[in-house]
Amino acid sequence: MTAVLSQDDKYVRFVNVKKSYDNKNLVVKDFNLDIQKGEFVTLLGPSGSGKTTCLMMLAGFEDVTSGSIEINRKSVQDIAPYHRNIGMVFQHYALFPHMTIAENLAYPLKVRKMSSSDINTAVQASLDLVELSRYGDRYPGQLSGGQKQRVALARSLIFEPSIVLMDEPLGALDKNLREQMQFEIKRLHEQFGFTAIYVTHDQTEALTMSDRIAVFNDGVVQQCAPPAELYERPANSFVADFIGENNHIVGTVQQINDGVATIKLFDGSVINADATLNCPAVGQPCALTIRPEKLFIVSADRRYENFVSAEFITRLYVGDSIRYFFKLANGSELMVKVLNDHEAPHLIAGQKAELTWHTKNGLALDKP
């Protein structure tokens, strides 16, 4: 179950927030989210789902059409962006190209009218913090993408904000740099304890960095929960498909008893699944969802309560694992993921096989 925050824990609050740019169509339809002080919360979803708009409303760069946003139990609608004590990190760095790195870091402190000596001390401490102590005299154009993003991160923290907003901050980096910066951001978050609200469409990034993830689709939060709960107990088929890899077998709910849904498949066979809170009613179509690593090819030591017959199509070698692709008689495709070891089976195209899984690992959700 998702933890319910007490009133004192609700440091940032979005209450019935809606946003429209044309007074007709809602980009954000009804956003409710409470964030604890010091928490790392990620807004995850496809492009155009409303994530960045929510971030911009909190920062004060966009107006709220209706609803309210609160920080520390105070509405921020009438507070100017520069008075909200919020740091911001963008995907494309937003560094001033005509300023040195040290001048870029000093800028938010000069705006706050700090003394020159305090600014110089803070700038050097920030450069040390992101391991760029010898780069203060360089210009942004002389730095790599990863170095620029470190500077952008340091600039967002230099005035000690209580909240840091990050909008796709690693989207412009390659895979190795992204992973390094994920570690860097988490290290700084743990060191300073700021409240982080992070926007991304990269599910792996969200799963590895977040305390909780709010999954968006079409301006609505589908589910907000810790990473393991989102992955293991998705609220609906959209979340199940968006978070990680997933299989669907469509059927009809025959009965629900003691938390187990009995599902009749297209060929008349019957299987069982965990009846989720959003399990369709008896007589309604549903989707049995199973993660590829929880679905197995029947063998001497792999035989569980549920079976389906399938035809092997092909396998995909991805290094540490192997993905096996199968087709059911109705044309639906299933994927089985196994570790790449000496026990990995060898099948030929067209070969018939039985696939099996534990009832607890199959969830009865809405039909996608």
Rank of each mutant, 00 (worst) to 15 (best):
V4A: 14
V4T: 15
Y11H: 03
V12A: 11
F14R: 13
F14C: 13
N16V: 00
V17S: 05
K18D: 01
Y21F: 15
K24Q: 14
K24E: 14
K24G: 09
V27P: 02
V27Q: 05
N32W: 10
F40W: 06
F40L: 13
V41D: 10
G45F: 10
G48L: 05
G50M: 09
K51Y: 10
T52C: 02
T52D: 03
C54Y: 09
L58H: 03
E62M: 04
T65R: 12
G67H: 02
S68P: 04
E70P: 00
E70D: 06
N72F: 06
Q77G: 11
Q77K: 14
D78C: 05
P81Q: 09
Y82D: 15
H83V: 03
M88A: 03
M88S: 01
Q91I: 05
P97W: 02
H98P: 02
H98V: 07
M99E: 00
N104Q: 06
L105H: 02
A106G: 09
L109M: 15
V111I: 15
D118H: 02
Q124F: 04
L127M: 04
D128P: 04
V130Q: 12
E131M: 11
Y135L: 14
Y135W: 11
Y139K: 14
P140R: 00
G141R: 09
G141I: 01
Q142T: 01
L143H: 06
G146S: 09
Q147E: 15
Q149V: 10
Q149E: 10
L157K: 09
F159H: 01
E160T: 08
S162C: 00
S162D: 13
I163C: 07
P169K: 12
G171A: 06
I185S: 08
E190D: 10
Q191M: 13
Q191L: 11
V199K: 00
V199S: 02
T200I: 12
D202E: 07
A206H: 08
L207S: 10
M209C: 08
A214I: 10
A214V: 11
V215M: 11
V215G: 01
D218F: 06
G219L: 00
Q222C: 04
Q223C: 07
P226L: 09
P226M: 07
A228C: 05
A228M: 12
L230V: 08
Y231R: 01
E232A: 12
V239T: 06
A240V: 05
D241F: 02
G244V: 07
H248M: 03
G251Y: 08
T252M: 14
Q254H: 07
N257S: 14
G259M: 05
I263P: 12
F266K: 13
V270N: 09
A273H: 08
L277C: 03
N278Q: 10
P280I: 11
A281H: 03
C286G: 03
I290D: 03
R291Q: 10
K294S: 11
F296C: 12
S299H: 02
A300K: 15
D301Y: 07
Y304A: 08
T314M: 15
T314S: 13
L316G: 00
Y317E: 12
V318F: 14
D320L: 13
S321V: 14
F326A: 01
G331S: 01
E333H: 02
K337L: 13
K337Y: 04
L339E: 12
D341T: 01
E343M: 13
P345E: 15
P345V: 14
G350Q: 06
A353I: 11
A353E: 13
T356Q: 05
W357C: 02
T359N: 10
K360Q: 13
A364K: 00
D366L: 01
P368E: 12
